[in-house]
């Protein structure tokens, strides 16, 4: 354990860090794949992503962080134009 984290242990404090629950991307069964041509840049998938694994970039397109995406599929359910498809892991 690094010196920074041992300092926080001393005061029973935790500090913010991505992946505090592990690399949750390994839980995923279905992977969301975004079709950029269909995307209307509304940002709803970003708004409703529980894991905060979707970034809504400056040009209003979205990217998915597959290290942490748990594959719940809410992005695919809320997408108004069906631009997010859930693909079984291992098949790309």
């Amino acid at each position: 354990m690094s010196s920074v984290s041992s300092k926080y242990v001393k005061y029973i404090l935790s500090r913010p860090m991505a992946g505090a629950g592990g690399k949750t991307g390994t839980w995923r069964v279905h992977r969301p794949v975004i079709n950029a041509e269909r995307c209307i840049k509304c940002g709803l998938c970003w708004l409703y992503c529980p894991e905060n694994a979707i970034d809504w970039l400056e040009n209003k397109t979205v990217t998915v962080d597959y290290d942490y995406c748990k594959g719940c599929g809410i992005c695919s359910d809320v997408c108004p134009v069906g631009a997010v498809t859930m693909v079984k892991e291992g098949v790309i």
Binding site: A18, G19, G21, W27, E51, W56, L57, E58, K70, G71
Partner: peptide
Amino acid sequence: GRTKLIMPGTSACPGCP
């Protein structure tokens, strides 16, 4: 849009409200 208000990689179930 790019701010992680909650860091990704939590222990919550998939689809947690």
